[in-house]
Design a protein around this nucleic acid. Structure first.
Lengths: 184, 184
DNA sequence: GGCAATTGCGCAATCT
DNA sequence: TAGATTGCGCAATTGC
């Protein structure tokens, strides 16, 4: 599956600035398309149906000329050779396809933008949470420090007071607990 | 500043599908533009120079019709009235402007994409850091808990052993420290 | 084969 | 005046 779906007209060398001003009929489709664009904004589903994980592998462009862009419409080259039959553009089916695609494009871009916004917001949220966590760590560290100091102090007092008695009232060595690694 | 920069030709109703196939001269600019697009990818600075803090205030559009899109090129309506003088498009200056703008657009989009990627990466980094912080909190909490238990235990032993002696060797009450609020 | 979703691109209007 | 952004349509691709 690699052939163009509907582009059977040969594409040769085309200047990047095609479609010079020209008159063209087809007033009906005009009305249609405009009428379609008129509505503020159709529901526009929000569920991202397709993940599309793999990278868009651009088709092998053996031709040095990338693709001569699709800015406007396929037209003729300076040679005068027509690349895209104008009849196509007048086709009702063509217009319908274009309209549908245009809608799809809008939808896709909207989603893309929304996603970017969401990601940015996620960053903000995570940053806030990080701050909360850091604060908590600071608090716990301090609490731990105080407790350890208290422990050490008590141990010393105990030693000073006990020594005269000639025996420790407690086999456990409080200093042991206070020696716990404070880091990590 | 609110007037159009260069679009003095009146814009009326224009079909969404303008620029029908037409021949057009100007071979030089063609070569130029193609030659320009040929290079893989110019350096393209990576530093975000413009913050653009304020919202893009869209010009007051009293016209119900959005803007008739700029998809390709201004052309004529079904009436045959030319909206954009074809002479403009052949203008060398016009082509130069277009070329420059096209480059700017590419650059801008590239940056935009890069930024989005960076933001996504930032999310990942923040998530990782969050996990580290949570782990640290867990560890500290456990450590604190152990120490407090040790403290309480010691206090009890002390009380049991001291009572018989008839006097506490230490005025400080260990239980006091252990009573510290464990939460928050 | 068909169709919606993506994506790269050029144009024109704006913004800076 | 010029570069940067942004919305939009077109055409090529992709994936279902």
């Amino acid at each position: 599956m690699f052939l163009c779906s509907r582009r059977w007209w040969i594409q040769t060398s085309r200047p990047p600035h095609q479609n010079p001003p020209t008159t063209q009929p087809n007033g009906v489709s005009v009305i249609q398309s405009q009428a379609r664009r008129a509505p503020p904004a159709p529901p526009l589903a929000s569920a991202p149906r397709r993940p599309r994980p793999q990278q868009r592998q651009q088709a092998p462009p053996p031709d040095p000329a990338p693709r001569s862009a699709a800015g406007g419409t396929a037209t003729s080259t300076s040679t005068g050779r027509m690349k895209k039959p104008s009849a196509e553009k007048d086709s009702d089916e063509y217009r319908q396809r274009r309209e549908r695609n245009n809608l799809a494009v809008k939808k896709s871009r909207m989603r893309s933008k929304q996603k970017a916004q969401d990601t940015q917001q996620r960053v903000n949220e995570l940053k806030e949470e990080n701050e909360r966590l850091e604060a908590k760590i600071k608090l716990l560290s301090k609490e731990l420090s105080v407790l350890k100091d208290l422990f050490l102090e008590h141990a010393h007092n105990l030693a000073d007071n006990v020594q005269p008695a000639g025996a420790a009232p407690d086999g456990a060595s409080p200093a042991n607990g206070a020696t716990n690694n404070h880091s990590q």
